[in-house]
């Protein structure tokens, strides 16, 4: 029915306007986790959500918030289903979402389908002094944006999610898209921890303004 389609679009916009419980600057639409909104009958709606991470504890809050909002708009029956496939990727975060993240002080993820973890060299070791000169006392140095640092310690190559190496010259990310400090825009930062306040972020420190910041890591 034509009217249904229009109503579905309205409901989809409504559900998409719900703020993310952990990053309230983003809406669910910005984050790209809202998959489908279907009318299944008069006053009855089914919503499909996909989690960012399999264990993301925010999904339950998102579902409850969507239900509450749609109820308030006269939908009596709201069913929120969680779907895993196709898997969510940080590429699903909208351009608007990336802008808001940066404004909020979080370095947005770089866009790529191929990227897995970005291996970084650690600090000084007994046999491998290379790269140690500028290593901090923390977990290691990574002058992100200058690709030699984004390499695997053992092979000297970055590695993709399936464990294979990227090409020798290959960063998995486009060259014009470097990781920048959200405070001073410097491309020079070091990794403090691969996991930060939530699983989806890494903790970094800017080497210029020295401010620590979260980086929404690529998934």
């Amino acid at each position: 029915m034509v009217t249904d389609t229009r109503l579905e679009a309205e409901l989809r916009a409504l559900a998409g306007s719900v703020p993310d419980p952990e990053l309230p600057v983003l809406t669910l639409a910005d984050l790209g986790v809202l998959r489908e909104v279907h009318l299944t009958g008069p006053g009855s709606v089914e919503v499909e959500l996909t989690p960012t991470y399999t264990g993301c504890p925010a999904v339950e809050t998102m579902s409850a918030d969507i239900e509450r909002l749609l109820h308030a708009h006269g939908i009596r029956e709201v069913t929120v289903r969680s779907v895993l496939s196709p898997p969510w990727s940080t590429d699903d975060i909208s351009a608007e979402g990336r802008r808001k993240l940066r404004e909020f002080g979080i370095a947005p993820p770089r866009t790529t389908r191929a990227a897995g973890p970005v291996a970084v060299p650690l600090g000084p070791t007994r046999t491998g002094a290379a790269g140690a000169a500028h290593a901090g006392a923390g977990a290691g140095a990574n002058s992100a944006g200058t690709d030699p640092a984004r390499t695997d310690v053992g092979t000297g190559l970055p590695r993709s999610a399936d464990g294979s190496s990227f090409p020798a010259n290959g960063s998995p990310f486009p060259a014009d898209e470097s990781l920048r400090c959200p405070h001073c825009d410097s491309p020079r930062s070091e990794l403090l921890s691969r996991f930060s306040s939530t699983a989806c972020k890494a903790l970094r420190r800017c080497l210029d303004c020295r401010e620590p910041f979260d980086h929404f890591k690529e998934l």
Partner: peptide
């Protein structure tokens, strides 16, 4: 479906 999602997470664990 689960493996397709979790493989990206476990890549970080392995790293």
């Amino acid at each position: 479906p689960l493996a397709g999602k979790a493989v990206h997470e476990t890549a970080y664990h392995r790293d």
